[in-house]
Write a protein that binds this DNA or RNA. Sequence first.
DNA 1: TGTATCTAAATGACTGTTCAGTTATTTTTA
DNA 2: TAAAAATAACTGAACAGTCATTTAGATACA
Lengths: 176, 176
Amino acid sequence: MDDIAQRAGVTKGTIYLYFDSKEEVFKSLVRESIGETIARVSENATAFQGSARELLVFVIRAIGGFLRTSDRVVLPKIILAEAGNFPELLRFYRFEVVEKGIALLSSIIARGIEQGEFRRIAPEHAVRLCIAPLLFAALWRTTFAQFDPEPYDLAGLVDAHIDVLLRGLADGNRPT
Amino acid sequence: MDDIAQRAGVTKGTIYLYFDSKEEVFKSLVRESIGETIARVSENATAFQGSARELLVFVIRAIGGFLRTSDRVVLPKIILAEAGNFPELLRFYRFEVVEKGIALLSSIIARGIEQGEFRRIAPEHAVRLCIAPLLFAALWRTTFAQFDPEPYDLAGLVDAHIDVLLRGLADGNRPT
DNA sequence: TGTATCTAAATGACTGTTCAGTTATTTTTA
DNA sequence: TAAAAATAACTGAACAGTCATTTAGATACA
């Protein structure tokens, strides 16, 4: 909290004028960085008229870009690291971010299956296969990247992910 | 440390007769649970004569089974959560586990490409695409599973992963 | 314009707790 | 009865959260 205060140019006491606890600081961070974004993307996604494939790529690229470039990439790491200390934060993240993110991607996958673009893969698994490499990228950047002699190509990973995933999901019987 | 001691049926002081620090306890845990396993699997893998595809499935299933059933699944979580407190532990894990695991899978992927089983995907990315869903499974089990109303089907996730991954990697020009 | 007064915001020293690591003492084993 | 193993009370550091005091900004008035 002293560190956070210092970065904000105030002292620790000041933070407690605006937040009830450290946990509330984290929750606000989650709310402001991700909660709103998911809600906004969800709206756009349901309105989108093109192929599920296009939409999926768009969403994955959006998340990938965010994780590659934003400071907020630390959030997943914070959640995992602090899960033991702040169970309520974990619950909050699970339902405000994870659940909604899963719902968003699930609907895209389901639509893709309906439209015959994707094979019949259980959406609850397919969703996690979409997300896993992105989470991996976030954790790599925030945890292991410091040891890389030359920076690992995260953008390349996202590209490879999309490439492999789309081929893996594609319904071979239909034209793409 | 008191908790660990209690689980071991001794008191904290006793632990310090056998380990220099908490960090050393973690390092021993990593060494004994994973280090050896990777070395052993690596030997078998280089000796293996069948298709890269078969071998890759075998390794992924082995890791997947381990993560689904073993208590040791907590390790990735511990590493991520304690990375800030124990930088040396992180370094150790990075080079003893991550680097060797990557090398193992890389060689399988590279062989698969040479043999024309897989498309020419950069092995450093392909490797991470193999691992990411497994890491995801581990983190799900140790972090989010507690909120699932009915247990999420991790075995199904691993199956779906293998299914999608192999299709995604497969070289369409060759017979499978 | 300059000064007094009031109030909201910010401070920083302080508290209590947690916890890794230590060590003098006790217990067990040979 | 001596040596080895284990204990449990203790220490010091880290750190979230508190609160009496100080600072800054606004308003009123000469």
